[in-house]
Design a protein around this nucleic acid. Sequence first.
DNA 1: TTTTGAGTTGTTCGA
DNA 2: GTCGAACAACTCAAA
Length: 486
Amino acid sequence: MSQGPALVWFRQDLRLADNPALAAAMDVCSSIIPVFIWAPEEEFPWAPGAASRWWLHQSLLELERTLTQRGAKLVIGRGPSAETLLELAAASGAKSVFWNRRYEPAAIARDTKVKTMLREQGIAAESFSGNLLFEPWTIQNTSGKPFRIFTAFWKACLTESAPPEPKPAPKQIPVPASWPPSLTISDLDLDPAGPKSTIDWAGGLREAWRPGEAGAAEQLKMFIDRAIAAYPVARDRPDESGTSRLSSHLHFGEITPRQIWHAVHRNKARDGAANKTGADVFLREIAWREFAYHQLFHFPDTTHKPLRPEFRHFPGHRDPRALKAWTQGKTGYPLVDAGMRELWHTGWMHNRVRMVVASFLVKHLLLRWQDGAAWFWDTLVDADLANNTLGWQWTAGCGADAAPYFRIFNPVLQGEKFDPKGEYVRRWIPELARLPDRWIHKPWLAPVQVLMEARVELDKNYPKPIVDHDMARKRALESFASLRKS
DNA sequence: TTTTGAGTTGTTCGA
DNA sequence: GTCGAACAACTCAAA
């Protein structure tokens, strides 16, 4: 308790509960200075998109609010991380900096540099494990290498001792006698819907989400109370709300996988057998996030290069017109278009539909998965480098434990199976709303009379398919066959 | 040491 | 309508 104030550097851990860096700082230092820095490094090479920045802005306001409740502040800085931390340390007399680790390649490089610079200046710098269940270097196969198969990976995780119990948020935070200078959150210009915006761009986002630690905890509680038992089946239904919707909260560290793990296990112990399957299936999804982070740590090039090198020669095209039709939700396949429009309007897309639209881009349109990943990165409110990278490589067949090349989603069948009444499609494509269920996923096959009555004019108010499914499927299979030969 | 079987999310074809 | 097979190649653990 004698080291003076500590800087606690918040990054993608915008919470007070289960925050090991904050807890450690409070253990050894007499007072705490919470800091958030918007650094140029945060915008290279993966600058967050508008939806992600909106969330970050809201989440920072929430963090500031909870800190204020505890008598503290959130000090806001702008500029290169290392220099800004050094300035804040000089201004406050802090002799130590604490943070929770990040695992993106650029963040690792930056944090390593920051640690060195701080220590050279006589400032203690400590990083902690706060955002994963297990550190990536601790999970290995019997040959001491990282897993490439998910099930084997998760099995190995489950033989480890359970992740530590999360600690609750501190009730009070000891504050320094004086605070270093700070910008305001608005000064960071993160919010694209902020005062400088002329349109209310974020209306859809505001309706759909409640960023921040409290919103995250509430969402988890609601999911466990109401939805986890039905999760194994309901999660596949974009027309219902059977998923956890925790992705953004997890990305910004408003909630941790450890908190989720323990909450789910507590509920599993309390409830009957009915919830056990739901609990295990849901934790497997949390495990996929874990797997994605471990993959990104061990194979940092996979953000832009296929994990399996033979896929370098896969004929991924650049076709601006096809890409545009995909991004705008004008491919002529209702499920694909509904998903892309949901993404544009809410910054989010149901996971089942993400797979369908991604498969469509890679296998029907033969476009580069990197271009699809870039669009998701720009538009998703939960854009996460590890999850996005693994997801796209998985779809394209070039990643770890990837979808086999012959798994080509049929957008019509997927629609009929998982959106049987077309409610999801009608919600996002109002011009198709009057079509009967039978044709809602394949309007181009509907009789003329039906189309007229539904006021659907193909290629006028809704496009015909930009590519024929049977042809595209055969073409994709041939492309993969040629890949094998080369 | 070698072998064997299994591996998130599918579709089509033919019996 | 239902059902099983086929559609690769590789990773990994267990036998």
